[in-house]
Computed example of a mutant assay.
Amino acid sequence: MKNILFVIFILFIFSCENTVKEEVKDYSKITLTMDTVMVDSGDEIINLKYKLYTSTMSEDNKFLYLWNNGETTLDKINLEELRLEKKIQFESEGPNGVGRYVGWLSFLNENEILLSGFPSLMLFDMEGNKTREYPIIEKTDFKEVNYFERNPILLENGEVIYGYLGNRFNNTMTFVKSDFKEKKLTKIELPGISELPDYRILLETENMGSLAIPEKFVKKVGDRLIISSTAYSTFYVLDLKNDSVFQVSYTPKLTPKEKKGGYPEKVESLERFRELMAEIDTEINFQSPVWDEQNRKFYRFSFEALPSEINEGPVFLSADQRPISKVYLSVFNESFNLLGETLLDGLKNVPNTVFVRDGQIWSYVNVDDELGFVRMTINYE
């Protein structure tokens, strides 16, 4: 009996000690320990011309799938073993053709993946065989329904897609649930979204037309979707069990909570368009929250770019392609309560294609045209 009581007492001490440690963590003085790992591509080449822009992850973060438009191939990369496991050849034309260009892809399961042509959606197996082509739903309440924004979420054996659907130029992008089995399209209201500083800047000249909008993210974490934007800290959580949505609003102490807004909706000069985009990028930019299963926390990076010269380079530069001024990290518990935030003094590059494995934050990096990842371990004082 004495031994039993002693064991219980020891367990109680350890339980209290762990609780105290959690409470005294100083989230304002986080530091990162980093190392870089490389993917072994064997005798093959992993094309990083467009970074990991056209890629997707398996839900368990064990595999990265990277599409190569030039070769019409899908690279399956094993992140546990850090090697290119398979290069899957697809066809451009014919019954199994993907078309001339794939804009994005979305993982369904280990045997199927969704590819987006323009505007068609196609489901393929992992041998490059087309198993399904999705029809365009014509009867809707929307003015025009043309395409899904990149990387929507595919569920229920491919019968349901959640994501932004519409037309950027006609300003009809709306978050929806598209049920192909029931042939039903449901608009999902995001409470208070109209009050947030979204922007849409149309460049219209005699020779060209371009449109700039904030990047929007949709991430699946368990039975929830997290919907966020680069333009503001507020994000939304959708419960997939009942399609209910709630807003997560918090006020960062280190940065503004959103971009200032009030930008013109239309410009007629390429130079003015470049000026506006450079100005917008110097304001705060938010990435999507990412989930750490091991530590039961969400991490979210945000950053500010330095003012940069207006040059004759690409019309569109993402904010992280500009010189970076400051990078911040915010930490949330699993109920989306903000635990703290910190300025990462030693980090001058914005983490790219961020995910978490085994309690470490991973970020894509190009090392002499080879695929690598920086792994970051969080240290608390």
Rank of each mutant, 00 (worst) to 15 (best):
N349F: 02
D40N: 15
F336M: 08
N337P: 01
I213C: 01
V350G: 04
N366A: 10
E22W: 09
F148C: 06
E312I: 00
A305N: 02
N111L: 08
F12Y: 06
M38H: 13
P119F: 00
Q247G: 11
V245R: 01
Y101G: 02
Q321K: 15
T36A: 02
M122L: 04
S92K: 13
L240H: 05
D43C: 01
I226D: 02
K260D: 13
S58D: 15
L317T: 09
L105V: 12
V367T: 06
V290S: 01
E156Q: 09
G192N: 09
Q294T: 12
I201Y: 03
F6K: 12
S41D: 10
F180V: 00
E93N: 15
E215S: 14
E93C: 11
L115D: 00
D368W: 09
F303Q: 00
N311R: 06
K219A: 15
E341H: 07
P191I: 00
T31I: 13
W362M: 15
R296D: 10
M208F: 03
G192V: 03
E85N: 15
V102N: 05
P264E: 15
V315G: 10
A319M: 09
K220W: 08
N151L: 08
E112Q: 08
L11M: 14
I193Y: 10
A319F: 07
C16T: 07
F336R: 05
K187P: 07
T251E: 08
V331S: 02
S233T: 04
G261P: 13
V221M: 07
Q321I: 11
K25P: 06
T353W: 10
F6E: 08
F9D: 07
P197S: 02
S106K: 04
K181D: 04
T36Q: 03
N295E: 14
K241M: 12
I153E: 10
E279N: 05
L238I: 05
K51W: 02
V221G: 05
I280Y: 00
I137C: 05
K181S: 11
S194F: 00
G222Y: 12
S288A: 15
I30L: 15
I188L: 12
V327L: 06
P119E: 00
G313L: 05
G158N: 01
R83Y: 13
L317I: 14
M38I: 14
K130W: 12
Q321R: 14
E80L: 14
T172Y: 06
V7A: 15
L52N: 02
K177P: 11
E159K: 02
F273E: 13
F217P: 03
R272H: 13
D243T: 03
L66W: 01
T72G: 03
K220T: 10
T54G: 05
L154E: 05
D292M: 06
I10C: 14
S335W: 05
E149W: 01
L5V: 12
N78K: 09
L108N: 05
